[in-house]
Design a protein around this nucleic acid. Sequence first.
RNA 1: GUGGCUGUAGCUCAAUUGGUUAGAGCACCGGACUGUGGCUCCGGGGGUUGCGGGUUCAAUUCCCGUCAGCCACCCCA
Length: 427
Amino acid sequence: MSQGALPGFRDFYPDQLATRNYLMLVWRDIARRYGFVEYDGPPLEPLELYTKKSGEEIVGQLYTFTDKGGRQVALRPEMTPTLARMVAAKANAMRKPIRWFSIPQLFRYERQQKGRLREHFQLNVDIIGESSVAADAELLAVAIDIMRAVGLTSKHVRARVSDRRLLTSLLVSAGVEENELARVFAAIDKTGREPREVTRDKITAAVASEDARKSIERLLANAKDLDALAKEFASSPQVLEEIARMREYLAFLAALGVGDWIDFDLSIVRGLAYYTGNVFELFDATGEFRAICGGGRYDDLLATIGGVDLPALGFGMGDVVLTEILRGRNLLPTPVLSAEYWVAAEDESMLSEVMRVAGRLRAKSRSVEYALKPQTLSRQLKSASSAGVTSVVLLRRPDYQNGKVTVKTMADGSEQNVGLDAFLDSL
RNA sequence: GUGGCUGUAGCUCAAUUGGUUAGAGCACCGGACUGUGGCUCCGGGGGUUGCGGGUUCAAUUCCCGUCAGCCACCCCA
């Protein structure tokens, strides 16, 4: 075997690149429909851009090196810090809310596995400078509309939504102490993926109060039932306020036409520490794939990174998992990699005439191939056929001298003798 | 970082209890069907059996290591 790409990195052969381009086309189109504009930043950033937010431990998962100027640099593992910097630099000058999206290639030095490589392309969609619930609904609608655009339905994909403010108010109301919250969050985040006993053990370890633990049990039992939670914890005004916010969010999502994709699920917490409010994930309904997309509100992050205090929310959607799902469901379009026309000549000495005709077709924006070496007509047609062109423009010496060519449609073999000029004008 | 499974041509797979120059289909290139493709037939290129050691008269086949891939854990994009 010859050596391939580095582990976790991909070679994109033409058909694979066509798939990637297709996805990006959809991403750009849907983002555009929602009024988002595209930006980009450098793939290489100062290391401290990432350590400032996440601490030193993240360095182990970054591609880092010292450049020739002695700077510590890293290949970007996520886009948000770059976004924060760019927005912060011109925050005052920009109309709010800012609706930006980007499709960066991101890098992470980790053991690769299904749906997760060391490099991927990720759509990032962010709204900055708007704290209203409508913004949260708008953001999630973008992600769901992308699912629709690639042919997935609400049966295939579910959006699970929650809100850390709601979860926090519920836990506080249940009697969990401030300093216990983080560990309870972590335990709840894993609820769907590990046995109930493990979750219970973790909560027992994290929470001192017996009563609080019992409340958490009831809370988890009703994690997908907003009405039940409202009833159960009706004594807390804080909880009721948060539930009202969630109801408004769900109502807005319905108004945006994506209501049937949504499942309320309090156990969605998301690993990233910087989420402050609404959080959501998009999952394949069969559960055999990783999350397609994840995001939420991070109102404090811009102040931390960029030094500008603006509320913000966003999501990331990677190309790897989405491509796997679409391939599994046979929803990837067959890429068209063939030229439209093949110019052939009956007479092997007519190569320069072939070139002239090819040139005129190309000037008409048509994609054209022809045999680069002298070949029999039989061979040329064989090549044209295997190249997959839809039509062959055939030159015969006497006809061509009279300005005529034969246009052959490969699908049915039909031929038409036409004037070259008229044919070109018809394109 | 931990553990399990796997590794033969570009792809999908063969190769009798370890036994002679590792085969086939598809793909690719070319020829024939005497200058209009898709069919058919013929031929060709392409493998130090992932790599490195070991056991053996003999290793694709057994053992060890290593690399890579897949899966799970960890962690998250």
